[in-house]
Computed example of a mutant assay.
Amino acid sequence: MVKIYGHRGAAGTHPENTMISFEEARRAGADGIELDVQLTSDGEVVIIHDESLDRTTNGSGFVKDKCLKELQKFDASNKFSHLYGETEIPTLQELIDWLRGNSLLCNIELKNSKFFYPGMEEKVIKLVREARLEDRIILSSFNHYSIVLCKKIAEEIEIAPLYRDGLHMPWAYARSLGAGAIHPDIKAVPNEIIRASIEAGVAVRPYTVNKEKDIENLLAVGCSAIITDFPAKVVLMRDQFFNKNSNVNADIGGIGSRLKNT
C-alpha cells in the first residue's frame, strides 16, 4: 500500500517542523513524517527548514549563527499561533525520543546545500544509532555528496537523493549512490519514471503532493509513498481508494465464481 509521509509533520494545518505538527501527522494515521535539520552555532542538531529564522519564527538571522539556548527562546508557531499557541524549535534529540514511543517512519532531510555544516552527518547518525532507529530512518538531501557520506558512515541506514528537475534514469543514478529510493519534486516524476523505478527496485516518494488530482494519480499508479502537507486528507483518500478497489476486485471475483458454477 502507498505510504503517507507528513511533510514537516502536518505543515498545511499546523506549525511546520514542530512537535505539534509531528503529533498531528501521527494522530492522522500517517505512516511517517518528513523533517529538516540544521546545526546551531554550538553544534546541536535542530529541526527547521529555512536557513533563516525570519519566515517561520519571530526571530531573525541565520540558524547557524545562534546557539541552542538562543533558538529555544523564539516562537516557531508561525501563522498558527492563534490556533495552537507558542511552540519551540525542536531538537532532533527531542524528536527521536518521541519516535521511540510510536512506530512512525522518519525522513530526515539534511539542509546542507547553502551551508555545508561539517560534521552534521555524523551527529545525526549518532543520534539515530543511539536510539536504535536505523530501520525506520531515511536520510535525504539535495546535497548528494552528503548522503553518499552518510551511506559510507552507516550502510544500514537508507538514503534518498532529493531533486527538482528531470533526471535521466533516476533509478540507475540512485543505485550509483547506494540509495534505495528517490525523492523527486512531483513535477519531475511522470508515471513512466515511477513505474520504471519501482520495477528496478527503487522506491519513489514524491514531494510535496497536495493537489487531489496528483494524489489520485499516484495512488492509481501504485507509487511507493506520498509526501504531503495534509496527511489527514491524504490518508483518508488512500484508504477510500484501496477500499473501493478491494470491493471492486471482490465483486469481480464473485462474478467469476458464479460464472464457473453456471
Rank of each mutant, 00 (worst) to 15 (best):
H144Q: 11
N191F: 01
D36I: 04
S60E: 03
L105Q: 09
K66P: 02
L219I: 12
V37T: 14
N78I: 06
L68F: 11
G201K: 05
N217H: 05
A11F: 00
G6I: 07
A181R: 14
V209L: 10
V128R: 01
E156R: 03
I182R: 01
L92T: 10
V2C: 05
I227F: 01
T228L: 01
K114H: 05
P231D: 00
E88F: 01
H49A: 09
E16P: 05
P118A: 03
K3D: 05
A30Q: 08
A11H: 11
V234N: 04
K66W: 01
G29R: 02
G61W: 02
W171A: 06
G61R: 01
I4G: 02
L139G: 03
S246N: 12
W98L: 09
Q38F: 06
L105H: 09
T18D: 10
G59R: 08
K114E: 06
S176L: 11
N245L: 04
E16A: 04
L127I: 11
N247T: 13
F80W: 15
A28Q: 11
N243R: 08
E88R: 14
I4T: 04
K244V: 00
N243W: 04
D239W: 12
M169C: 03
K3C: 01
S60H: 09
E51K: 07
A154W: 03
L167C: 13
K79I: 14
R205T: 11
A232S: 01
D42H: 14
N249E: 08
A225G: 06
W171Y: 14
L35N: 07
E51N: 15
L92N: 12
